[in-house]
């Protein structure tokens, strides 16, 4: 790949870096407890939590670093951190 003049890049390239491999703990989302408030989606520093069809939220494990912030802040205690199995 030729270098881009001025050390420049187009958007989208950070996605090549799959930060999910950093994870030690994995957030498990319990949709039965979830009130669909969307707080986790707002506060995830990775922006990797997405709304699925029925309004439930799920993280994209390709990028989730397992920081635990969503689990800590979830008002319904619907997200549990579990040791990652590798």
């Amino acid at each position: 790949m030729a270098l881009a003049i001025g050390c420049r890049a187009k958007p989208g390239k950070s996605r090549d870096n799959k930060t999910g491999s950093w994870r030690v703990f994995k957030p498990i989302f319990n949709h039965e407890k979830c009130s669909q408030c969307g707080l986790c989606q707002t506060i995830c520093p990775e922006g990797c939590i997405h709304e699925e069809e029925e309004g439930f939220l799920n993280p994209d494990y390709t990028y989730c670093k397992g920081c635990g912030l969503c689990s800590e802040e979830c008002p319904s205690e619907a997200i549990e951190m579990k040791q990652e199995e590798k």
Binding site: L3, I5, G6, C7, R8, A9, K10, P11
Partner: peptide, 20 residues
């Protein structure tokens, strides 16, 4: 047409930027 401009270069790229 967004671009990121003036990114930093790791040792994998810096030498080539200087060369160019």
């Amino acid at each position: 047409d967004p671009i990121s401009f003036g990114m930093y270069a790791t040792p994998d790229y810096y030498l080539e930027f200087r060369y160019e």
